[in-house]
């Protein structure tokens, strides 16, 4: 009864692929439209301080070299057709293929986001369970107080607070970058990397705990008030074993959905945290590309992050189906 037929699976995959195609097309069109109305002149941003030494002719030459003399629509289609051929273009500020820049920067961000994602998920879920099992008691009040405080704190502000306390006053962690400044790549070991990762990851996860914990708590409270818990208790089940048998799976659903569907917030948070900690990830590259008018890189990052968020949502979708038999049947007909 729960074996999935091949055709149902195929339909599911095709539907998701079609959605992804539409999403990417819409996102890139919107992003390009926004960029072309941006007041930033890429040539000006590129030249920077050398503005006195670069004449009008040279500016025109740079613009022509980059293809900026064409109308925006023509540029968009040229970019799109190159993309269809697998070419994401060349970054103006890094002078490297966009794919390479994203690939390199993404690893830094991935490490940061994965650490924050795991930490916030595990801590948030545990805190939610503990709070629900001790409803109204001190532990519960502390968890709720923490969550409400953190949920109303801007993450960049928290990042600066951590930077001041742990980086400057206590000096436990470095204040920025991903490796010690001035060190050769060969001299950097994983401990150094970990120390540099700690503060940004801590910031990101501290903020991410609140929603997971609160949703888990709420769901488990619902479960604990349900008829089937009453029945389980009438059969002598109690305490942690009762929660493990009847509550964990149910509470895991919102937590997992939230964590996977929260990739967008994770990415957004990473942009801010990387900025504050000068951490060289994709988020910082996005900010630079935006500020300096690096259209190919910005477009690449926009597409990439859309794909990233889409993947998160897809995973959430699949997880829910795997765990909840009711959704499984509704979503994928036998």
């Amino acid at each position: 009864m729960e074996k999935l037929s091949f055709s149902a699976l195929l339909r599911f995959v095709l539907l998701k692929l079609a959605r992804l195609g539409l999403l990417l097309a819409a996102v890139s069109a919107a992003a390009f439209a926004l960029v072309s109305y941006s007041p930033i002149d890429p040539v000006q941003a590129y030249i920077g301080a050398d503005v006195m030494r670069v004449g009008a002719e040279q500016r025109a030459a740079i613009a022509a070299y980059w293809g900026l003399d064409e109308p925006p629509l023509a540029r968009f289609f040229r970019w799109a057709s190159a993309l269809a051929g697998g070419d994401m273009g060349t970054s103006l500020i890094y002078r490297q293929p966009v794919a390479d820049v994203i690939g390199e920067r993404f690893w830094g961000s991935l490490l940061l986001m994965a650490a924050a994602w795991l930490l916030s998920g595990v801590i948030g879920f545990t805190a939610g369970i503990v709070a629900a099992m001790n409803r109204g008691r001190l532990v519960d009040r502390i968890v709720r107080w923490y969550c409400c405080t953190l949920a109303s704190t801007p993450s960049f502000w928290l990042a600066m607070l951590f930077l001041m306390v742990f980086g400057v006053w206590l000096g436990w962690f470095p204040v920025g970058l991903a490796v010690p400044a001035g060190a050769l790549a060969a001299e950097v070991d994983w401990l150094d990397r970990l120390r540099h990762l700690a503060l940004p990851a801590l910031t990101l996860s501290a903020v991410g705990i609140a929603p997971v914990a609160l949703h888990t708590r709420e769901k488990l409270l619902d479960v604990l008030d349900s008829d089937y818990i009453l029945f389980a208790r009438s059969r002598g089940e109690s305490g942690i074993r009762l929660v493990r048998r009847h509550g964990l799976k149910a509470a895991l659903l919102p937590a997992l959905t939230l964590q996977f569907a929260g990739f967008s917030e994770l990415f957004g948070g990473a942009v801010l945290a990387e900025q504050v900690f000068s951490y060289p990830g994709l988020g910082r590259a996005a900010v630079e590309a935006g500020v300096r008018g690096d259209v190919p890189l910005l477009m690449g990052i926009v597409l990439f992050s859309a794909l990233f968020v889409f993947t998160g949502n897809l995973l959430a979708d699949i997880m829910t189906r795997l765990i909840d038999p009711r959704v499984r049947e509704r979503g994928m007909p036998k």
Binding site: S226, D227, Y228, F231, S234, R235, G236, A250, R326
Partner: peptide, 20 residues
């Protein structure tokens, strides 16, 4: 006694764990 000598037969489907 609960779950051993003493048993409750409750009212309906809502007393069954939906995920089990």
């Amino acid at each position: 006694l609960r779950g051993r000598e003493l048993a409750l037969v409750p009212q309906g489907v809502s007393y069954l764990d939906p995920l089990l």
